[in-house]
Each structure stands twice: as structure tokens, then as C-alpha cells.
Design a protein around this nucleic acid. Structure first.
Lengths: 226, 226, 226, 226
DNA sequence: AATGAATGAGTGTTCATTCAT
DNA sequence: TATGAATGAACACTCATTCAT
């Protein structure tokens, strides 16, 4: 009785917090299962058990299985959209910023290995709205790369280049670390991969006259290795 | 009388041909459905109906749904593994051969749009053997690119570069035309995309001293948007 | 308020009871159908309909059709393992106890006619564990007969005899009332059959010197057909 | 041409023989499979493969699967109906003939182990006519026992007994060697089993005054073993 | 807010049977 | 006779979703 009255606002906040925690608990459980099996092979019953709740409870937070899948994927992408920019804040020099952004992106992909695969595998099961949310989130993760590119272009450090296409090339380089990990894992370490891709990316973009200035960002400057 | 004897081989050949046609008919029907809905949302009943045969007949040619899915994906990749090399036969000059291979690859991806997406979406439902088959087929499609790169490197036309990594970057450029088509389709035509990627790829690899020689392979070097 | 706390155990008990009732409901329905058609000709759908529940619900209580079949058979045998001993409690004299046990056994077989046939027909579809459960249950039903035999042997009322083999002969006499009912039903009533078998069993076992003492357990010693 | 005309009769006979061989080939193949798996778990395709013929050919000789199953069971029973009497021909003395018949019966059951189980498991899948055929065949196998009993009764060697019931008891003794083999195999050899059952059967039937005369047919005459 | 028993449409798979060759 | 490709109805089993408690 007393609680109901003078604690309305705190109560609402607490409720929202509890609700968010539940949602996180559920998407985490779902993600854990979906990463090894694919969303279609994960039943709501299994998610409930993994999360330690009842089936019915999931439906209090997600209207359908599709919504739950969307929740999982959007969760992964949102996390990436936060962590990629965070990893590239303090660098001033646009070229070093670009290299830094690409490195950060690849490292985040490495952390989110399964999450990235998930987006490629499961998106198509979503409705139009969910699909759009995912596309938006992906574009957001590419922003730091594109921003660094634009700055470098503004300062005439790089050749004129289609920023959109090249930006997505860089994004694919990062995603490829997850998508083609089965191929690279045998003879390429994460650090090798990052160094090679930075080297390739800068080779493609940087004007030749600045090459010496950023020589440390290139692999193997004198002789080829293969 | 005589037919019974010397017609054994033709008979076997005819049977093999009929069998191959059936398999093609079935994987084609399955592919058509799976491309729009994802393999898990396509029932064997639906495939049977699409192919105009009975359910039981599918099981005469594919032991399980998983085998059918494998058949579809391997079919797509095999076709790519044939058509990409075919598109790069007659070119002598390694740089032009590289450009030609990349162009051909992107165009084949454009033709096989849905098939490429299928590979990324459905592979994980396969058993170890099937997965390996797909990986092998993919590596085969990358071969023409890698070969052209090696030749160019041998002739010192390009900078030293990790051929494996760069080769897969090119493969990803091609795949990206399918994977990120939702992004590019608004303001990039296929020809634009090809031109830009060739330009970017050669910028990354070609030694500066040869740039003039292959100026026609670069997009607008002097003036460009932005 | 108080209910929440001290009602935990009653709640569990109630659930167990409900569960047991469901299991009984399902095995009963299954038994009814299987007795006339054989387990393989009874579909889970048919069982569901007969029981008035949904297919899915059966799978909440039985992991597979095989488990359901096992449940039915074990149910029948367990009932027999209870009712045969119950029918022979109060008799002191080992010979009369033996006769009584055989009579009770045959009468229970008569009640469980279909159930006995089921055991012979369906056991082989079970896994090793289920098969063992059934064998154990059968051996348990034979116990009252064997016990009576041992007592009679201890008191030198019967000739030395292999108790195991003779015990199973008696069990087969009982089972035969179900197995060969098609043969006996034309000219033998249940009571005739019981009397004849008791007479035969005692003739085989009882020492001649005690024959007069149990004369009432023999059929017509002096005059009989043929 | 010439063959067609003057060889009509031999041709028909040859055809009949070929047909009988085919039927035997098919029921043998079916029996081999059904014994380990139960008729319902054996497909016509599997029978065809086991027999080394096509599915269609089976339908030229058996109108349906049910007919094939009937063919198998009747085949087994017919063989038994031939071999049991054959094993008891030359014995004159009715008591020894009875013992001999029971022994032969048990030995034939031992040979036809799987076949006997088959009759109990599969008969119920047959139509009325097939069921009758099986019952008739079974009754025929019991005949030698019943005949020996009648002769012994005529010569007053055995007590008055219901020949029908007792005859079937003996048949069940024999069948039990197959039906309850899982129970006996651990501590009873075939020869033990035969000796025990003969002893029990004669104890039940033989008049006490003739016991000495056939003492060799009883196990353990002086003291009990168990 | 939370449970979990219950539903029932939908799926992959099998197999008796047919029939063109 | 003999083949075996083709059929399609039937089945065991799953799982998203609901709802009484």
C-alpha cells in the first residue's frame, strides 16, 4: 500500500531495469545456443531452459521467436557499433586514424566472431523492419572507417577514391576475419592479418609521396614475403 | 538379340545421363525455393511440388534433406569454379588478366547472386564432409585471381604483397556485390562497381611506375566527386 | 500466504499424482488399440485421439513410441505381478496353495488375455533395457508358483523335480490359455481348463501316497471320456 | 518353334518348378530378414535386395506384403509339420514313442528357434484365411504327440487324461524352448531340458505301476536335484 | 511476473504398390 | 518374366504459441 504511492517513479525505473536485465538474460541465452546451432535449430523451449526460465516468460518480453532472433542480432550489432568507434577516439592523424580504425574493427570482429557469422546466417529470417535495423547498425559500424577516409581525402593524403565502395571494402576485410577464419587460421595470426590488411589498404589509398612518412604501417618494405 | 549384348554400355550411359538430369532438376527446384526463403523454411514437399515430382523420388537421389542442400550449394559453387576461369582464358598480360579475372568474378557473382548468399547462409547446416567440399570449391574459385597475382608478382609488375590475403580480399570484393547488394544497389551500377574495385585493387598492388601503362583500368584519376 | 510455504510438498505430490494419472490414461488408451491391432499398426495420432489428448502431450510423458509400448507392456505385467500373489495369500497347505496359485494365474491370464498376447507380440520391438524389464516382470509373476513348489518339495509332498523347469511349465499352462485360446474356446470352458491343468500338474508332481488326500483336486479319476 | 509344340507338358512342369524355386528363394530371403527384425520392419525393397531380385518381381509371386508374410510363416510351419512326424516313425512302444515324439519336437523347435518366435509374433498381421492356415499347420505338428498319447491310453499305460489339453501342454513345453530360451539358456542345455520335460510329462501321465519299466526315461530317480 | 502443461499444424522420412519398359 | 523408377499416403516426432493457474 505505502510502496505503491510514494515510490512510483523509483518503482518504474526499477522495473525498467529489471526488464532490461531479463531481455539481456534471454538474448544472451539465445545467442549462446544459436551460435553453435543456427537459430532455426534452437527451440524456444531450449532457450527457456538455457536461461533458466519458463517458455511463457519469453513471450512476455518477445512477441515471437522472430522478435527474439532480431533481439539477439541487433544486440550483437549494437555492441559492435559502440566498440568500434570507442577503439578509435584519440588519434589525430587521419592516416593513422584510418589504420587504427581498421585494426580496431578487425579486433572487434575477432571478439565477436560468432556474432558476425550470426548476422550473415540469420538476418534473412527477419521481417523488413528487423532487416532494416540490422542494415542500419552495420552502416553505423562502418562510419569510423568512412570518417577517417574522408578526413584523409580532405587533406589530400590519399588518392581520390570512391569512399563508399572503399569503405565497404575495409568493412569486408574486417568481416572476412570471421567469415573466412576457417581459411586463415591455419597460417595467419590475428596480428599478421591486421598488419597485412593495413598495408594493403594504405597501398591502395595513400599517395606515393607520403609512403615514407607512414613506412611503419607497411609490412615488409624492402623485399616480398609469401 | 545383338542389342542385348553391345548395348550394355549405352544403356548404362543413358541411365547415368537420366540420373544426372534428375539431380539437376531437383537441385534447381530446391535452389529456386531456398534462395527466397532459406533452406530451413523449404520443405521437401515444397521441393517435390516445385520440381513436379513426388517426395519419395527426391529420396532416391538424395539420402536426406541435408544432402539435398549440399547438392544445391555444391552445384552453385561448381558452376562458379567453371565459369570464372573460363572468363579469363585468353588474356596474356598479368595485370590485364588480373583485372579481367576480377571483373569476371564479380559478373559471375552477379549472375549467381542468390547462390552466393546461399553459401553464406546454409553451409553451417552441413556435416563436416559437406562443409569441406564447399570450402574446397570456394578456394578453387579464388584460384584464377591468385594465379594472375603470382604472375604479376613474378614479373615485378606489382608490389610485394601477401598473395593469399590479397587474393581473398579480391574474392570478398566479388562476394560483397551479392552480400552487400542491398547497400550498393541504390547508387552503384554493376559496371561502376566493377570499375571502382578494379581501380582500387590495382592501386593497392600495381607499382607506381606502371600506372600510366594501365591508365585505362583506373577510374577518373584527375577529377572525381568529393 | 501460509499456503505458499507449507504447500510445497503437497504441490509436488499433486503434480506426481496428475502425472501418474496421465500416464495411466495414455497407456490405457494405447493398450486398448494395440490389443486389437498390434503396436506397429497403431499410430501415435490414433493413441492421442483414443486418449482424447494431443499428439504432443504423449511426448511429454513418453520419449518415443517405443517407450509408450514399453509402458503398456510393463503396466500389464506389473498388474499381473500384483494380482497373482494376491490371489494366493491365505492358503497354508503347499499343495492346495500350488493349485490355488495355478488357478489364480490362469484366471488372471483370462482377465489379461490381450495383455498376455501383447507381451509375446511386441516385446521384440523394445530396446535391451525394456526387454529386461519385461523379463524381470515375467519372472516375478512366476514366483508364487515356484514358492509353492518349493514348500511342497520341502515337505516331501511332491516328487523331486526341477523346480525351475516345472515352474515355467505351469506358467506356460497359464499363458497357453491366452496363446491357444483359439484352440480351446470351442470345447473347453475356463473352469474345465483350470481343473484339467491342476489335475495334470498335480499328477506330475504329487507323490502317489498323497493322492487320496487331495482327490478333490483331480478330475474324474475313474471314468473319463476316451 | 519346335520346343513350343512337343514339349508342352515338360515346359509346364519346368515352369512350375522354376516358380516353386522362386517362391522358396523369396520366402527364404524374407524369413532371414524378418527373424532378426520382425516383419513390419522389413520392407519389400529390403526383401528384394536380399533375394537379389527386383521389387516388382516379388509382386508377381505374392499379391501383397501380407501374402509374403503368410508364405514365410506357413513355410516354417509346414517344414515343422513334416519334420516332427518324420522324427517319430519307427518306435513301437507307445510310452517310448511319446517320449521320442516330445524329444523330436523340442529338437525341431531348437532347429526352428526363430521360426517358432515368428509364428507368435507375426500371425496377427494375417487375414482370417492365413490365420486359419497357421492354426491348421500348428495342429498338424501336435498330431504325433496326440497319437502317441491315444495309443498309450488305449493300452492303459497312462492315467485317464484330457488328451487335448495334455497334448497342448506338451506342445507348449516344446515351444517354450524357443519362447523362453532367454530364461533357460543360462543354466539348462538342450539335452537337460529334453530330459526334464520327458520326466515331467511321464510323471504326469504314466500309471505308477509302470514306472520301473521306464525308469530310464526319468531324471534323477533316487534323489532330488535342484 | 511467472510457470509449464497442452495444443496441433507442420516436417522429414519410409515403404507398399504400380507400371512403363 | 523381370526391372526399378516413380508414386503418395502415412507416420513419428518437433516446436511455436497459448492459457489456466
Amino acid at each position: 500500500m505505502d510502496t505503491t504511492m510514494d515510490a512510483v517513479q523509483p518503482e518504474q525505473a526499477a522495473q525498467a531495469a529489471r526488464s532490461a536485465a531479463r531481455i539481456r538474460q534471454l538474448t544472451d541465452a539465445a545467442a549462446r545456443l544459436m551460435m553453435s546451432s543456427g537459430s532455426q535449430n534452437v527451440s524456444m523451449q531450449a532457450v527457456a531452459e538455457e536461461a533458466g526460465v519458463s517458455v511463457g516468460l519469453i513471450y512476455r518480453y518477445f512477441a515471437s521467436k522472430q522478435e527474439l532472433v532480431k533481439g539477439v542480432i541487433v544486440g550483437v550489432l549494437d555492441d559492435m557499433a559502440v566498440r568500434v568507434p570507442a577503439a578509435t577516439q584519440q588519434v589525430e592523424d587521419p592516416i593513422r586514424s584510418l589504420a587504427s580504425a581498421l585494426e580496431a574493427f578487425i579486433r572487434v570482429v575477432d571478439d565477436h566472431h560468432a556474432g558476425v557469422l550470426l548476422t550473415y546466417r540469420e538476418s534473412h529470417n527477419l521481417d523488413a523492419e528487423g532487416l532494416q535495423a540490422i542494415k542500419d547498425a552495420e552502416i553505423r559500424t562502418a562510419q569510423p572507417l568512412v570518417t577517417a577516409l574522408r578526413q584523409a581525402a580532405d587533406q589530400k593524403l590519399i588518392r581520390p577514391v570512391n569512399v563508399t565502395v572503399f569503405g565497404y571494402d575495409l568493412l569486408m576485410m574486417a568481416h572476412a576475419w570471421a567469415l573466412k577464419y576457417w581459411f586463415f587460421k591455419h597460417d595467419t595470426t590475428l596480428d599478421d592479418y591486421i598488419a597485412e590488411q593495413i598495408s594493403i589498404a594504405l597501398s591502395a589509398a595513400l599517395r606515393p609521396e607520403y609512403r615514407q612518412q607512414y613506412a611503419d604501417l607497411f609490412t615488409d618494405p624492402t623485399e616480398h614475403k609469401e
